[in-house]
Write a protein that binds this DNA or RNA. Structure first.
Lengths: 218, 218
DNA sequence: TAGATTGTTAATCGATTAACAATC
DNA sequence: TAGATTGTTAATCGATTAACAATC
């Protein structure tokens, strides 16, 4: 995926964290917060936080800090959370069902309009009131319903085919949980969630730690 | 989590990708590969690949490249994939079940020994032949069975409590899928999978793209 | 006004890329 | 030997941190 903006991905990937912590402050009725306090909460430096926020505008006020409500709403809007996105979930196994049942996504504006599967036992079921369709109907469904985001929860061997179908139907973004990279046109946004890579990082760190401890003892 | 090693996390997080692509080359009976070819496949630069690999040793040979089998095995061993890790999954909802059913993890050496839940309807069930226990038994189970990795698949409001129980029982690493950060002793490895942050990144990029297109048309 | 804290520039640090001698 | 490609050093680039004037 090509990018045109000057905002670095490092900054973009911190925004959801700010958003989440600000949401918590808001829930606790905190009205103002300084970059120093945000630093304590998030673990980023105060300087970095001020730099990050200033990529998008001067949300703060000297001597005061940031208004929690305002900043929360502003970041939400920067993240595009003030609109609704229609999604489809392809693959109605455990993972697809988990996502269909995860109300937080729907609450955040990502609305699953349908699930798709090849398994006849699943087709026709309703999961969290979302209907499971035959994957044969995926292309027309996406096209006819102006679906923007496709969520791939199929096994590895299906994901490329599904991605191509979604691309043909005019999908704008793909959230891919299959443990394989997919190749689609450059103008479709692809976000991979490679769980095994996350898990392998754990085993690397476990091993590294063991080696360091061993070395220290000698 | 404190780290003592000089290897940067940027490098560590690329290792699983190398491992995966090398596994695919191996499956396709490719015997040797150059950094240039790996660059084409992975999208990293050839220079970066050589730098990364040389953090761990000279696996290549001038004029030849890298032996696929050897490199695959070496990176596997660097990642700690040549040993077996006992795990528990806390939370036997859709996500916990998805992970319990995901054979790839077990094949990679991460063996789920038990699931835990508070829901009496789930306790006693077997999922992919893994028994669901009452979460009350979590602490003693982890302690008595030398569990190394705890996988948290509970809702947000449970995860901190579960993390503390795991910590008390002597867990070495926590893989956290709950949409909240957990606070545990610094010597426990914590890997967070914050799905909403990944999703919000998509909506940011969708919005950014729209704005850029709009600006271009003016 | 004095104190606090931002917005922003400059300095530093770390990661990536380029270049090339070494060598298979 | 000639060609290919690594391992490694040096150069560049980008991201983070420090510093401080502006100002609420």
């Amino acid at each position: 995926m090509e990018r045109f903006s000057s905002i670095s991905m490092a900054v973009v990937r911190r925004l959801p964290k700010y958003y989440r912590y600000l949401g918590e402050l808001k829930k606790n009725d905190v009205k103002r917060v300084s970059s120093q306090e945000l630093s304590r909460i998030t673990g980023f430096t105060a300087s970095q936080i001020r730099q990050d926020l200033n990529c998008f505008g001067g949300f703060g006020q000297q001597g005061y800090g940031y208004n929690v409500d305002d900043l929360h709403q502003n970041i939400g809007s920067i993240l595009g959370l003030d609109k609704v996105y229609k999604t489809v979930i392809v693959g109605a196994g455990n993972l697809g069902q988990a996502i269909a049942n995860y109300t937080f996504f729907a609450k955040s504006g990502f609305i699953p309009e349908a699930l798709f599967d090849i398994n006849p036992k699943l087709i026709g079921l309703r999961i969290n009131d979302i209907k499971v369709y035959d994957v044969e109907e995926l292309e027309s469904f996406v096209r006819d319903n102006d679906i923007e985001i496709g969520i791939i929860c199929t096994p590895k061997n299906q994901c490329q085919k599904v991605a191509e179908t979604l691309a043909r139907a005019g999908i704008k973004a793909i959230w891919n949980f299959a443990p394989s990279d997919i190749t689609v046109s450059d103008d479709i946004i692809v976000e991979n969630v490679h769980l095994s890579e996350s898990l392998f990082t754990i085993s690397y760190l476990l091993k590294e730690k063991e080696e360091v401890l061993k070395a220290k003892k000698l």
